[in-house]
């Protein structure tokens, strides 16, 4: 009898907790993300729009919006549910998708090409996915970069956290990449999972550089202008 009572007391909170969720407000016309910072040539496009517009700080990005960066350019994109940010490096195209699910915002991004650094907070129930021509990656809380090469191969390298991924082609290899490791998925769906190389670590470091600096060198033949990234506030 005493054991039954104890069991009942222990189980009761679980039932109470299980029944405590509430239905929450419906979706609205809220952006999925917004542009936090731009350097040089950044353009964006809304769903169904044919022309690219010059992006400005604070521009909202709605479901199916796109962001494109030019040479030596970058865009910092913040998700409106506070789940994290993406650093869109030069010559990249980022497609943004989002769906309100009660108070959660399920996010997906499609990367045509280029390198995207990400810093994503721990996701509770919401989804955060990256899709590339060769892979789908699902993340919860992590820091790293994803790169789509000119041959459409995908590289996912992490400093922290973990990412589950699956190839969408050929062998449809899958796996989990964790902090300090890199996964490469080729066009045939083959997966290579290794420790991050120095090059990967450098890329992880350079994705965080958010400002460019210019140095002008005067020569008899004219001025040489060198522009390079430097670290800065995100």
């Amino acid at each position: 009898m005493r054991a039954k009572s104890l069991l009942l007391v222990l189980l009761m909170p679980w039932f109470i907790g299980f029944t405590s969720d509430e239905n929450l407000p419906p979706t609205g016309d809220t952006p999925v993300a917004l542009v936090k910072k731009i350097v040089k040539d950044v353009t964006y496009k809304k769903a169904g729009q044919s022309d690219w517009e010059v992006a400005k700080t604070g521009d909202p990005l709605f479901d199916q919006g796109q962001v494109k960066t030019g040479s030596k350019s970058l865009a910092l994109v913040l998700f409106t549910d506070g789940s994290g940010l993406l650093r869109v490096r030069e010559n990249a195209v980022l497609n943004i998708y989002g769906k309100r699910n009660d108070k959660q915002l399920d996010k997906n991004t499609y990367i045509d090409k280029g390198l995207i650094g990400f810093e994503v907070n721990k996701q509770e129930n919401a989804e955060f996915k990256f899709t590339t021509p060769t892979a789908v990656a699902s993340i919860r809380g992590t820091l790293g970069f994803i790169e789509v090469g000119s041959d459409s191969s995908t590289t996912i390298s992490l400093e922290k956290g973990s990412v589950e991924f699956q190839s969408t082609r050929g062998n449809k290899g899958s796996g989990t990449v964790t902090g300090g490791n890199t996964a490469k998925i080729d066009l045939l769906g083959n997966v290579n999972l290794n420790s991050a190389t120095e090059e990967d670590k450098n890329k992880n470091s350079t994705t965080k550089q958010l400002t460019t600096k210019k140095v002008k060198i005067k020569t008899p033949q004219g001025d040489i202008e060198i522009e390079y990234y430097s670290s800065g506030n995100r």
Partner: peptide
């Protein structure tokens, strides 16, 4: 504590939740 130039200044508050 962020340090922002006038061009970079962005104040954004989300009420999604």
């Amino acid at each position: 504590g962020e340090m922002l130039s006038g061009d970079e200044l962005l104040i954004s508050i989300s009420f999604i939740k």
